[in-house]
Amino acid sequence: MTHTTTTSSPDSATTCGDAAWERLNATYVDAAEETSAAPPVSAKRRFLRRFLRSRVAVVALLVLLLGAAAAVFAPALAPVDPLAQDLGKVLRPPGGENLLGTDELGRDVLSRLLFGARVSLLAAVEGTAIALLLGVLPGLAAGYLGRRVDRIIMLFTDALMSYPAIILAIAIIGAIGPGLTNAMLAVGIITAPRVVRLVRGVVLGIREETYIEASRTIGTPTARIIVRHVLPNALAPVIVFGSIMAGQAMLIEAGLSFLGLGVQPPDASWGSMLGTAFRYVSRSPTLIVFPGLAIAVTVLAFNVLGDGLRDSLGRENRGER
């Protein structure tokens, strides 16, 4: 930065000192040009490098992949049919023939956990997907169009956010009836306003950037600007949010299924397993340990992954210290 002013040295070449300074200036300018010619690192590679460097985030990703694999290959992995009842061996403690014990109908807990992973993970993804589906478009519109559209959309999101999430979810289920799909719809509806706010915030941030301004002045249609410029920029924060959201969706689903408002028997999610285990808590306390652990670990993984993604996708690496 300093080399731009060096030529304006006031009284040049009058003493030996001056000549010496001038010579040095020349070498400095060369050096500056050399250093600035370093090859640019692509954004994708920088993201990957940063992400892989944060070990916990990588572990979280592996945990989630493991969970997904368990869900997909549950039929092959499960030692027995998760629905097979055996009233001769109910509420067995862990160990022996049934690694994690049996439930109140003599069903194998490990098998039910593996199949439960299908429901729980699917529910998390479904709830998040619905929230994004409902939230992205209004968020874009509010942020990009501004003015009255913004005010109306924000009024609606404010209203939706005024209901305590679980109570609203319960009310929606009360109206449309219990069941996993309805529960996930409710989760989607109650989280959509946060997506709206997030996307709106991102759009407000980049709307004033020069290149958007430039596209607008040469008459590019609004829809095209949004698809070409705004959406790609909103992608990173939405992905980060999506990961953390999936954890939250899983928690809410677990809560709703625990209350018997989500997945219906004989199918089971980790939440509904806890719901039934609760009734036998005094006779078989271990029954509630494993589904709860499964939920906690998965939600933790979603959160840590989200944090890791945010740190690696961020423009500045303030979080790296």
């Binding site: 930065m1 300093t2 080399h3 002013t5 060096t6 040295s9 300074w21 040095l24 400095y28 050096a31």
Partner: peptide, 9 residues
């Protein structure tokens, strides 16, 4: 800001 005229860093 910085002293502008000493060359080099």
């Amino acid at each position: 800001g910085r002293l502008p005229l000493i060359p080099g860093r």
